[in-house]
């Protein structure tokens, strides 16, 4: 049990953050986390390379989180958003960045955009993979991602400029 607990302690926060950005509901993500860890422990013998546990668990968390929200949301209705202008590079100053604000801003992103933003930028998925996972087109994924960036920029104006 110690080893399982240690795995939980090592990965739970990262997995919770990933799930939370998809479900946007703490209670839902706690359920996802519980299910994902139990699934991973049940199937732990199927894991071929022990060093890849984290990546494998992440897949389970993302899939279960998406399955969870798919029951509530209809991604097919996500639209291709109009082109957004790129952020001004020079106006960004990391020294004044407050992560709590960013966290909050991400959670306030509209459903769909937030998931795409999270999967693309934070989980390293490609737009094609996101499109497959969410049953949307690649262009929708790309435009929703840009839209999320634009909204974040707007919400974070005081610290962004």
């Amino acid at each position: 049990m110690v080893a399982m607990r240690s795995l939980y302690e090592t990965f739970s926060k990262e997995m919770m953050a990933t799930s939370l950005r998809i479900t946007n509901q703490l209670a839902d993500s706690e359920d996802v986390l519980q299910e994902a860890f139990i699934t991973s422990f049940q199937r732990i013998n199927q894991l071929k390379e022990e060093g890849k546990y984290g990546g494998w668990l992440k897949q389970i968390v993302i899939n279960q989180s998406l399955n969870f929200v798919k029951k509530k949301r209809n991604y097919a209705s996500l639209e291709v958003m109009p082109e957004c202008s790129e952020a001004q590079e020079d106006s960004f100053d990391a020294r004044v960045f407050v992560f709590d604000k960013i966290k909050e801003a991400i959670h306030k992103l509209p459903n769909g955009s937030r998931e795409i933003f999270s999967l693309y930028l934070l989980e390293g998925y490609k737009h094609k993979e996101i499109a497959e996972k969410m049953n949307i087109s690649v262009s929708t994924s790309k435009s929703q991602y840009r839209y999320a960036l634009k909204l974040l920029r707007e919400k974070l104006i005081p610290i962004y400029e």
């Binding site: 110690v2 080893a3 795995l7 090592t10 732990i44 546990y53």
Partner: peptide, 10 residues
């Protein structure tokens, strides 16, 4: 298996 994976994870 979890113990081994934990070592691998580290």
């Amino acid at each position: 298996a979890a113990a081994v994976i934990l070592v691998g994870t580290l």
